[in-house]
């Protein structure tokens, strides 16, 4: 985690972001940035403002103050170009359970402006990635929780985004699938060279080498490489201390 430099814009830059409902402020002066090709975890207890931050990053809501940069593009100034560089996995599943895996993928492709042979190729590639090429016709309902998440991640990557946003993607999964998804996305970050921004309230999903932003009650309490934030103590203890102290 470094401050933005003039040469290469960060994959994600958040500057002095504030947001609230009525008089209640949910995010206060949130600032951080994620360098390209880095995995950054947004760690915060429930109610820290993680989902609100995601709503701002995906332009489902607008900040009261502050600015969001996606790969050097201003989200408020060029929302459509910025959105087209993002892949998003929401906390709540957005698969159509009654439709087949292939229909889910092709619907997404169309929403992202992909069509024809190009879309077909990307859909097949996503199915291969999932190992579901032979079972593309099964309804999404028939997949287990881990596989549904994998499908959503593969879908979010179909249009070749530079930035992958995931809002607590392991919620509701068993420990094994949770570890598997966490490993999978870490690997994606390395092999595909995409920037990953991963929200969670679970410390064990953060690897020592990841960038880390700790959010609590709408404020950034710490940012930096996870191992450095933790120092010589376990990250869990540091996180609990921080959130308890400022509560």
């Amino acid at each position: 985690m470094t401050e933005p430099t003039a040469s290469a814009p960060p994959g994600l830059a958040v500057e002095h972001l504030s947001f609230g409902y009525g008089a209640e402020l949910v995010l206060r002066d949130v600032t951080f940035s994620v360098e390209k090709r880095r995995f950054c975890a947004l760690l915060g207890p429930n109610g820290a403002g993680k989902t609100s931050l995601f709503a701002l990053l995906t332009r489902l809501a607008m900040p009261r103050a502050g600015r969001i940069g996606i790969d050097g593009l201003d989200l408020a100034g060029a929302p459509r170009a910025a959105l087209s560089r993002m892949g998003i996995v929401f906390q709540q599943s957005t698969l159509d359970l009654d439709l087949s895996v292939r229909s889910n993928l092709s619907y997404y492709a169309a929403l992202r402006g992909l069509y024809g042979r190009d879309a077909a190729r990307r859909i097949d590639a996503a199915l291969d990635r999932l190992g579901l090429r032979d079972r593309a016709g099964v309804k999404a309902r028939e997949l287990n929780g881990g596989h549904r998440r994998r499908t959503e991640i593969a879908r979010a990557l179909m249009h070749g985004p530079q930035l992958l946003l995931l809002d607590e993607p392991t919620v509701g999964l068993d420990p094994e699938s949770r570890a598997e998804i966490t490993r999978h996305v870490h690997a994606l970050c390395e092999t595909e060279g995409i920037t990953v921004f991963w929200a969670t309230h679970l410390v064990d999903e953060v690897a020592p080498g990841d960038d880390l932003v700790i959010l609590h009650q709408g404020r950034v309490l710490a940012r930096g490489v996870a191992a450095e934030v933790a120092g010589d103590r376990p990250l869990e203890a540091v996180f609990l201390d921080m959130t308890a102290r400022s509560a």
């Binding site: 995906t58 332009r59 170009a81 959105l83 709540q92 929403l111 402006g113």
Partner: peptide, 21 residues
């Protein structure tokens, strides 16, 4: 009622203009 809210999010985060979506 949230049943479809997820799919609405998917729709609204498409890079096409909102009025068209």
């Amino acid at each position: 009622y949230d049943r479809e809210m997820g799919s609405m999010r998917l729709l609204l985060t498409s890079p096409l203009p909102r009025w068209w979506l």
